[in-house]
């Protein structure tokens, strides 16, 4: 899965294509998320397209972040959101 985060410094490597994941032998796994910091130009549908290959899946991201995103059309650079894996 694409991290989507822009590199923060020209001297630093680009980690935007890092694939990450997680799993557990726990009694129950409620959810697994990748954390993502919104950058300028992002929208939930763009993030959904990049992460899931389908822009319509923006609702999955919205549902997982209702505590920080009140209006799906209003997200801000620097906001940290959860992307369900």
């Amino acid at each position: 899965m694409n991290m989507g985060n822009k590199k923060t410094d020209d001297d630093m490597p680009d980690f935007s294509n890092v694939v990450s994941g997680a799993s557990s032998k726990a009694a129950e796994t409620k959810a697994t998320y990748k954390m993502y910091t919104i950058v300028s130009g992002d929208s939930l549908s763009k993030i959904a397209k990049r992460e899931y290959g389908n822009a319509k899946d923006w609702t999955k991201i919205f549902e997982a972040n209702k505590d920080v995103i009140k209006d799906a059309n209003k997200i801000y650079p620097g906001q940290k959101i959860k992307i369900p894996l």
Binding site: D9, S20, A22, S23, A26, A27, Y33
Partner: peptide, 26 residues
């Protein structure tokens, strides 16, 4: 300097000793 590579979170219900894994590749 430092750069974030990845950040992943699991919300778990644990009932004793448990193994969990996080992984990254590029």
């Amino acid at each position: 300097k430092s750069a974030q590579v990845s950040e992943t979170m699991q919300e778990l219900v644990l009932a004793g000793p448990t193994s969990s894994e996080f992984h990254i590749s590029k």
